[in-house]
Design a protein around this nucleic acid. Structure first.
Lengths: 121, 121
DNA sequence: CCGATAGATTGATGACTGTCGATGAATGTA
DNA sequence: TACATTCATCGACAGTCATCAATCTATCGG
């Protein structure tokens, strides 16, 4: 791998979250705002291309990937991939870090756990 | 009275259930078909009204609710609520059972767990 | 500087989605 | 039978979304 990895992509801001951070869908009726926030995140997962991007990033070497490594495998044009990455980033699921000419995307730790916890009773 | 649920998710005490049922987003790159199937389910969760419907059903007495009990709280018209319930049912998240004049919707056990498991590493 | 590369942004387009009023099909009640 | 209730379906409309070609910005190598 010719590209040099410099630093750990993301600094964990908090310890392990997931349980007490966010409302559960099953425990009590959701407020409008809670539902809107959650729906925004799940909608980001509601596209096959974005799920594949997530899994490609997670499975990549060092758990990070640049856009150029994703365009081919996901089978979409570069602007489309860039768009989907932006949607995922806006939902807090991934984060990009520019290093040289490349932008390295990695999965935001804890965010998926957060969503996962909202699906348990 | 109490719904005669099918004998689906019972003897799965080994490991957290769902571990072997469906692909994880984070473990290996998803195939197109897997991604499409998962995205369909997450897309169903990607709407505030549907999340609220889920939580209303889960929190209802007996964990089931008829449409007439949902229209008011969710704040949408009856056809719209009916539409959202259909989307949730098509995603396998809820199931409806007609009893008399009412259709009682309940959350399909295990389906949310299944989705939840795809979000863990 | 110059050309090449990585990636984001813009603009256009076709498809899909959420929404509601009107209507239809079942079911229960007087 | 006639009427009311419950819910699904239909038709229409406005808004959003996924997609790509073209373009723009930033970075690197010479």
């Amino acid at each position: 791998m010719a590209r040099t990895r410099v630093a750990a992509p993301v600094a964990r801001t908090t310890a392990s979250l997931g349980a007490a951070c966010c409302p559960s869908v099953l425990e009590a009726p959701l407020e409008q705002a809670e539902a809107a926030e959650l729906a925004h995140a799940f909608a980001a997962l509601g596209d096959p291309a974005r799920l594949r991007l997530l899994s490609l990033i997670a499975a990549a070497d060092g758990a990070e990937a640049c856009v150029c490594d994703l365009v081919g495998p996901v089978g979409k044009s570069q602007p489309t991939v860039s768009h989907h990455l932006k949607v995922l980033a806006d939902a807090g699921l991934i984060a990009g870090e520019k290093r040289g000419r490349w932008v390295w995307y990695s999965i935001v730790p804890g965010r998926l756990d957060q969503l996962r916890s909202t699906l348990s009773a």
